[in-house]
Amino acid sequence: MSDNQPKIELTGVTKSFDDKHVLRGLDLTIAKGESVVIIGGSGTGKSVTLKCILGLLQHDKGTIKVDGQDIKKMSGTERDEHLDKFGMLFQGSALFDSLPVWRNVAFKLLQAHHMPHKEARERAIATLASVGLSPAVGDLYPAELSGGMQKRVALARAIAAKPEIIFFDEPTTGLDPIMADVINELIVKCVHELGATTLSITHDMASARKIADRIAMLHEGRIIWQGPKRDIDHSGNPYVDQFIHGRAEGPIRMQVRRF
């Protein structure tokens, strides 16, 4: 395997739900160890893109390759190995509400990696500490936590098994600005210390600037602009300008009717 082989490569990916065309030929390449942030309006298919790469949704056309391997041509064991590389933070946290917090965080270690109970618990508590949660939280159930705490537990769960590739779907929404910055630093640390490749989705430009090596903007099912984060302020792209400045007026038309 050559070193300049992209970690994740999407070419011409399309995905429709019935007659709703969400992705319309999406191209995106992510190098090993790179941190890419996808920005874009609500409902443009950012979460769908992540789910297609994971294979939770089947894309219609185009190819998705991870480590050079086409995800549609994988055998059962190859698919297991493929999934084992990933950690995913879901937009809605998706914590298992029948399990206490620490078992959520240690889930993959216990079930898939067969780590001894005690060691897994220690790792879970340590990971919880890195997202600013005390050991006592470990014994609570997800329903007993606030929204922001649930998000941090979900984040801990995504990184606890030290995966090669981590997807963060809106890691900082619902957090206060200080905690948001703690999480941003944690993501940066994951990339540096684990050498992980990350793909994040965010609406929070401050967060995007902090965690991204490269930013890509998704609009109408395609990547309409991408580049290093320092270029985002002078991209020369009116869509990007409108988005990062959060203006209602511009080329992006929101589907709202005026009163």
Partner: peptide, 16 residues
Amino acid sequence: TMRVTEQIDALTTLST
């Protein structure tokens, strides 16, 4: 409930 709150998808991403 696990389906609509994406817990089943989460299981898959946790190699289960």
